[in-house]
Amino acid sequence: MARLHVESTINGEAQEFLCDANQSLLDVLRDELGLTGTKEGCGTGDCGACSVLVDGRLVCSCLMLGVEASGAQVETIEGIAGDEGLHPLQNAFLENAALQCGICTPGFIVASKALLEKHPNPDESTIRYWLAGNLCRCTGYDKIIRAVQDAAAKMSHPA
């Protein structure tokens, strides 16, 4: 069967790609578009490493077909840093040593960005529940939670 032609906006830029009907958005990002910042931990919705924003909504890109991104605005980890440099969340993850191997980090940062857009000053339990679908085998989570709190503080009171 012929591959499907899809047009969508990825990190603010119009993109066209071809994909198979059963190809996930995650596979399209990584294999068709070379956007390998989005990671695959499980492929079944359990780990959150593949987190992206679709029309502003936090989703697992492994649980969506690439063709479902047709006409949508997709934001991946590659689109988080601005022209002025790293996003406050990215800096906070570095400063708080909130990563070790790093495979979970893009997913945590994308998910945390969506959290802070909805709840600019989340308490610890809100952060932990929001990020319950992001798994990390290295850090033990505490440093990640602290990094998110730190970024939230810096974003609401820029130095």
Partner: peptide, 9 residues
């Protein structure tokens, strides 16, 4: 049902 991500869909 699932995580924040799952509930988005």
């Amino acid at each position: 049902i699932g995580s924040t991500q799952v509930q988005g869909r």
